[in-house]
Write a protein that binds this DNA or RNA. Structure first.
Lengths: 215, 215
DNA sequence: GTCTATATCATGATAGAC
DNA sequence: GTCTATCATGATATAGAC
């Protein structure tokens, strides 16, 4: 069928784009590189995606939508399991963190693209990002409020933001860590990474608020 | 004197480059934009910095060297003050975090350039980054080991890395936060930001290591 | 739907007058 | 040291044959 052929080219381009945008960023990756890697014609990008900007947007939403959907699925399961009780804090955080590494399995540039797009999103992505994350951020804040009623909501918001920063930064820097640690750290297994991040964030989320220090 | 004139042009270019690299990244900022903003001739970049890559490297080292120097100064003061005792954990973290925001005062793109360069450094920056951070990372790990003898050094290394991620991510996203929080969060004052981050990281650094869960 | 060929423009860098 | 003018290259996007 024709649609199958179309879908193949479409996907080949998206796969190549994912890897090259992750490696070189929006401005750094050229359509020539992408179409060469995808082994399709240069014009295929414009035919299937119209512009480079739209190609980038689709490349990113293709990874972020299933990720956020999976997060909400696991969080909802945990809420059903907890019944009237709040979901335990580590379970909330793990529902956010674990899917990141699960969906990244076998896609070496998945995490790099995520991190890059959050830390330095091309300007045309601002609206798209806000749309993709508006719902999920509210869901998580509510779950956190139930789990930690003693912490002010605004504080929870900040801390969740810090946690996302820690997650993305680490995700994109496994090699850097090996470098700075002089070989003490080599890319550990996924379960260790998840456990470490959940432990870190769980402790951090319920930090006491320090009183302003005297001089 | 001629050297004064040279230094003026030199600095005008660096200032313009700092702001434009922060906003658009290495590939996104063009030499024409930079020289236009600096109100100097296009060729001045090549004359003073040879290539665009060297201009970027100088732009970044100009902000990172005083920053890391200030961090070490404050940490050393704290160590002298502590004598034979370990420096308290919050003091260690604050010596790392505070200079970031102090040196950023009055330079709106300082933090954005920092964040961007760490999350998506141009490939030619890898060596330079490693050189600039090798010494300071070892100094901080040692201080953390003294303050938290019960936490394995490798765990400390990871957690410090998470903390840097939280710091940089937040630094570059004050506007994003205001957006996602639906106006609940508006750029707070520097002291609040520092306190919040230090509280968060202090609790996280001494997190207990959770036992692997049973199924 | 896919290709070749090309239009149009912006890029980094350089040559050479002053 | 600073300018103008320009080069060679590579960018995105499009027109039109097949």
């Amino acid at each position: 069928m024709k649609s199958i052929v179309k879908d193949l080219t479409h996907e080949r381009i998206l796969n190549a784009a994912e890897s090259l945008f992750a490696l070189h960023g929006y401005d750094g990756a050229t359509m020539r590189q992408i179409t060469e890697k995808a082994a399709v014609n240069l014009s295929a990008v414009n035919y299937h995606f119209d512009t480079k900007e739209k190609l980038y947007a689709e490349t990113f939403t293709r990874i972020i939508r299933p990720l956020n959907a999976e997060r909400l699925t696991i969080l909802t399961q945990a809420e059903l399991l907890a019944g009237d009780h709040p979901v335990p804090l580590p379970a909330i955080l793990e529902s956010f963190i674990r899917p990141t590494f699960m969906l990244a399995a076998g896609r070496p540039q998945f995490l790099a693209l995520m991190s890059r797009n959050f830390s330095a999103p091309p300007p045309f992505m601002r609206e798209i990002m806000a749309a993709e994350f508006s719902a999920i951020s509210q869901r998580y804040i509510r779950a956190l409020q139930h789990a930690l009623p003693g912490v002010p909501p605004m504080e929870l918001f900040w801390r969740m933001f810090y946690t996302v920063g820690a997650l993305l930064f680490t995700a994109a820097h496994r090699e850097t860590m090996a470098l700075l640690s002089h070989g003490a750290i080599q890319s550990p297994d996924t379960e260790s990474i998840i456990r470490r991040l959940v432990d870190y964030a769980s402790a951090a989320m319920c930090a006491p608020r320090r009183e302003p220090a005297m001089s």
